[in-house]
Deep mutational scan, measured.
Amino acid sequence: HNLTITQGKLFFHYNPKLCLSEIHKMEEVSGTKGRQERNDIALKTNGDQASCENELLKFSYIRTSFDKILLRWEPYWPPDFRDLLGFMLFYKEAPYQNVTEFDGQDACGSNSWTVVDIDPPLRSNDPKSQNHPGWLMRGLKPWTQYAIFVKTLVTFSDERRTYGAKSDIIYVQTDATNPSVPLDPISVSNSSSQIILKWKPPSDPNGNITHYLVFWERQAEDSELFELDYCLKGLKLPSRTWSPPFESEDSQKHNQSEYEDSAGECCSCPKTDSQILKELEESSFRKTFEDYLHNVVFVPRKTSSGTGAEDPRPSRKRRSLGDVGNVTVAVPTVAAFPNTSSTSVPTSPEEHRPFEKVVNKESLVISGLRHFTGYRIELQACNQDTPEERCSVAAYVSARTMPEAKADDIVGPVTHEIFENNVVHLMWQEPKEPNGLIVLYEVSYRRYGDEELHLCVSRKHFALERGCRLRGLSPGNYSVRIRATSLAGNGSWTEPTYFYVTDYLDVPSNIA
């Protein structure tokens, strides 16, 4: 807008934040220059609390790290170098490059900038070799853009010569660093050979998330399962459950009422301010606690030095998902009996873990797994792929695949051998790939016309006998059925096997 004052003059007093240069501009645009008398524009009460600059400061050096910015700028000295009290560095987070010096300023003089007072450097006698002032900004957020400017702080001049310097606002972004852990990993099994893994992005990506790394490792069953005799009275049979499938998407929606109208769909109840505040506090606490764990609990591995020492970490090797089922080394339970199943799973520490690289999504279907087997899954978020990966501390989750139908069934015939004193040795093959492992066998036998009897055969007993022995049988026709019990439950009964026990007292003698 054009402003013209045809008559009258300007009068400025007691404006401590208004620089004289701005008042002189007002004289020019209003056409009143030359009308004012000496005392109409006070030299001592206008701009006496402001830094009124008329020179431009330029930054000469900028260096960044993930949490620091090192700045240096060209030296500046007023005509009387004693008038320079120091520099004021202003900075704040700036997602967009549209910041002005006066953003967030209120009537009390406060604003949204963080201000650092910096002492002037030592003055050199040689004007050509003056030290460049600077400042190291610490405690910054990774991968965050900051708006920065600097200006001088000078003393009051009796001659009211307006001098000083100020830089333009520059924008500097800190470097990326390792992201925080992925949030809320959930693993479920939808079949006997697959596990579905879902997660949420890290709360602090500290860069642009480029991919996720998912490692999985087959877990050995508890050692007590191999040692305890679950045929003993009072000892509860062990059981394991597989990871249940995901709930429906509708039930997972946030901010939804727990109660549904019987007449149909209901609208979600909005969260109160107290609920939102509580969630923010919980989120802040979780982030602080995660940072504490990362800094205190997890110790970084030592990389190899120039002395030739090897990095103890196993090298990563990509495998196809079809090879995942046989990740671990199978060892027989008892070496003397080769027909026992290889369900003991000690994992070799030198073995390469299978892994998958996930790009542009937060889910993965891990296939080719062994049925009813526990897996430990390790999830890392990465925001750099080359020249070397920059990934987060791992988040861990466990899951067990679903049982395989008929995996616990005894394959092959049940054979028998009759000894003296009416002892019958029953023999059968253990299931080759049971659900988890076989903890015991149930032997059901009966003599024709009598009630059915049951015998429990422990895992250890089966390994020693290759089956079991029935003792003290009365003469007669017998039928026997056997079924295995694994961590997933009972298998199917075998087809009945028949044998006849004679009275050993009636056996004919070869003595003449």
Rank of each mutant, 00 (worst) to 15 (best):
S486R: 02
A395Y: 08
P434A: 05
E465N: 09
E442Q: 06
S320K: 14
R286P: 06
S479A: 07
S342I: 03
A309K: 13
R466G: 15
S268W: 04
T340I: 11
Q256I: 13
Y478W: 10
E451K: 05
G472V: 07
K271E: 07
V214D: 00
Y259H: 07
P238F: 11
D291R: 08
T347F: 06
Q219H: 07
R318M: 05
G368Q: 08
H416R: 05
Y259L: 04
S268L: 11
S479N: 02
E217S: 08
R481F: 03
T307M: 11
N295K: 11
Y445T: 03
E388N: 13
Y445A: 14
T328F: 13
I482K: 00
R376I: 13
F226V: 08
S315V: 10
E247Y: 13
P431S: 03
T288R: 06
S315Y: 10
V443H: 00
S239R: 10
S458I: 07
F419Q: 07
R316A: 12
Q275H: 11
E247Q: 13
R319W: 06
S274F: 01
S268M: 12
R286M: 09
E433F: 15
A336M: 15
G374T: 12
F372T: 02
D503Y: 09
H254E: 04
F419R: 15
P238N: 11
H454D: 14
K271V: 05
F298H: 14
N421K: 12
S268F: 03
H425G: 08
F226A: 11
V414C: 03
P300M: 15
H425Y: 11
T494M: 04
E224T: 06
F419S: 08
G306C: 11
N421E: 15
E221V: 04
S262I: 15
A309H: 14
F462V: 06
R286H: 06
H454W: 04
R447N: 06
G306L: 07
G476C: 00
L440S: 08
N295A: 10
D204M: 01
T485Y: 09
S284E: 05
E433L: 02
N435V: 00
V501L: 06
K361Y: 13
H352I: 04
N422T: 08
Y448P: 13
E417N: 03
E433T: 11
H425K: 09
D323E: 11
W493F: 10
L379I: 09
D409W: 06
R313E: 15
S392A: 02
S341F: 09
E247D: 06
L228E: 15
E404W: 07
Q252G: 14
Y500N: 14
V480T: 09
N206S: 06
N477R: 08
V457Y: 05
K271G: 07
F462L: 04
S262A: 07
A309N: 11
A220C: 15
Y396S: 13
T386H: 07
K302I: 09
P338K: 05
Q275L: 07
R313K: 15
T210I: 15
F372K: 01
E290W: 05
F215H: 08
N421D: 11
S203C: 15
H254L: 13
F372E: 03
V393H: 13
K271C: 14
H294L: 08
I209G: 11
Y396E: 04
H425L: 09
K236C: 09
W493L: 03
Q219S: 05
D291S: 06
V397R: 09
D503L: 05
D385S: 02
C267L: 03
N421V: 10
K460I: 08
S479I: 05
D261N: 12
S223C: 14
G325N: 10
V439G: 08
L235G: 07
F499E: 00
E351P: 11
T272W: 05
D250I: 15
Y504E: 15
K271F: 12
T415E: 01
P332D: 09
L237V: 07
P245Q: 15
D323A: 11
R469N: 11
H454E: 09
W242F: 06
T333Q: 15
N477E: 04
S474R: 04
A407I: 02
T497K: 05
K302M: 11
F226Q: 05
N326A: 12
A399Q: 11
S444T: 11
Y500D: 12
P238C: 10
F419W: 15
R301P: 14
Y292Q: 03
F355T: 08
S243L: 10
C456F: 02
I377P: 00
E227M: 14
S342M: 06
S274K: 07
Y396F: 14
A330V: 10
G472Q: 04
F246H: 13
G412N: 15
V345P: 15
G306D: 13
E247P: 11
D229S: 08
H461L: 10
F226Y: 10
G234H: 09
A330K: 15
G234A: 07
N360T: 12
E389S: 10
